[in-house]
Amino acid sequence: MTSQPAPAPADTATFDPAPPFGLLLDVDGPIASPVTRTVAIESIGRDLAAMANAGIPVVFNTGRSDAFIAAEVVPALRAAGLREGAPVFTISEKGAVWASVSPAGLGEISIDPELRLPAALYDDVRALVAERYAALMFHDETKRAMVSVEMTVGADPHAYLAAQKHFDEAIPALLEKHGLKDVRIDPTIISTDIEHELLGKDLGAARTLKLLTERGISAGSWFTMGDSRTDYAMAEWLHKHGHEVSHVDVRPADGVPQTPYPVLTSATGAIHDEAGAEFLTNWAGRIAEEA
């Protein structure tokens, strides 16, 4: 690894080493609006900070970059009064990059060099976007390990999805050019990630347990949350490794698969960050009642 996780703050011992549950959260959709790409609902930051301050592990397991977490998520937590030393982490770029989170921002950034794609591929994708797709999408310059292209905020979603199909079809030739065989193309409704095949929400779950173990924290159970079928990998990994887990699907229109663990959806029919906010408020209320 290029670096080690930042050392635990001095007041870590004030937090419960055996919290009743932990949260492993996708960011786009459940936390950040897929429309504005911001934490647009005030209660989300409030409830996350309240639970973290009560010792509940809050881990963002996302394809987003650490820079996105620092710019869009940390300010919401800081404004809500996140305490120094609260058990909050980001596992970014689907497990390739990770750091602790505090009111001051992110701790030391750790990167797995074996999962980092070559700079020449970044250059070719950047050029492809500039030449053919600049009106609808942009190359994410903040990614450290994977290559990502994202829909421009305000672009027509239907036009983007049509262009995305052609963009995705052009990528295999670039992978062949650079001799990359262990790489996959992962499109979403607002982006395409080009990533090492070992990356995924399951890797993020594994890193999460390692980080918490290093802090002496063991959650009694887990809630995972996401807006796509790939997010179920978090719960799958936790269940496979003997942890009690329930998964929250904030966009169940894709279809809810049969699972050996509970899958929860909004009781009101809310989706995306509105559904995420609904569940977070419920869990934060439960912790407040038990305090």
Score class of each variant (00 low, 15 high):
residue 140 D to Q: 10
residue 102 S to C: 02
residue 258 Q to N: 09
residue 186 D to V: 12
residue 280 L to K: 00
residue 79 A to P: 02
residue 181 K to C: 05
residue 140 D to F: 05
residue 257 P to M: 11
residue 37 R to N: 12
residue 102 S to I: 02
residue 190 I to W: 00
residue 55 G to C: 12
residue 230 T to S: 13
residue 100 S to A: 10
residue 239 H to T: 10
residue 53 N to C: 05
residue 8 A to W: 06
residue 189 I to P: 02
residue 85 G to E: 06
residue 51 M to D: 03
residue 156 D to C: 00
residue 262 P to C: 11
residue 81 G to R: 09
residue 276 G to Y: 06
residue 194 I to W: 13
residue 226 G to F: 10
residue 57 P to K: 03
residue 16 D to M: 05
residue 286 R to W: 13
residue 21 F to G: 11
residue 195 E to S: 13
residue 51 M to L: 04
residue 271 I to C: 04
residue 79 A to G: 14
residue 27 V to W: 07
residue 7 P to M: 06
residue 40 A to C: 00
residue 190 I to A: 14
residue 239 H to S: 15
residue 34 P to R: 01
residue 228 S to L: 04
residue 225 M to Q: 08
residue 123 D to I: 04
residue 6 A to R: 02
residue 225 M to W: 04
residue 82 L to T: 03
residue 31 I to T: 01
residue 165 K to A: 15
residue 178 H to P: 04
residue 287 I to W: 03
residue 187 P to L: 10
residue 13 A to N: 14
residue 197 E to S: 12
residue 211 L to I: 03
residue 153 V to E: 10
residue 74 V to K: 08
residue 167 F to G: 09
residue 287 I to Y: 06
residue 240 K to H: 14
residue 210 K to T: 11
residue 11 D to R: 14
residue 97 V to Y: 04
residue 213 T to P: 00
residue 91 I to M: 07
residue 132 R to V: 07
residue 116 R to E: 09
residue 164 Q to V: 04
residue 211 L to G: 05
residue 62 T to A: 09
residue 54 A to Y: 08
residue 36 T to H: 09
residue 260 P to H: 09
residue 61 N to R: 04
residue 202 D to S: 13
residue 261 Y to A: 10
residue 121 L to P: 14
residue 65 S to I: 05
residue 146 M to P: 09
residue 126 R to D: 15
residue 230 T to D: 15
residue 248 V to C: 15
residue 96 A to I: 05
residue 269 G to Y: 02
residue 8 A to V: 01
residue 33 S to M: 06
residue 161 L to G: 04
residue 196 H to M: 04
residue 62 T to E: 03
residue 241 H to W: 08
residue 67 A to M: 06
residue 114 E to Q: 11
residue 1 M to W: 11
residue 167 F to Y: 15
residue 64 R to T: 01
residue 209 L to S: 11
residue 114 E to M: 06
residue 258 Q to L: 12
residue 85 G to R: 06
residue 264 L to M: 12
residue 91 I to F: 00
residue 250 V to I: 09
residue 133 Y to V: 04
residue 54 A to G: 08
residue 111 I to P: 03
residue 126 R to P: 03
residue 8 A to S: 13
residue 71 A to C: 02
residue 268 T to Q: 11
residue 165 K to T: 13
residue 104 A to E: 14
residue 108 E to S: 10
residue 181 K to P: 01
residue 177 K to A: 13
residue 46 R to Q: 11
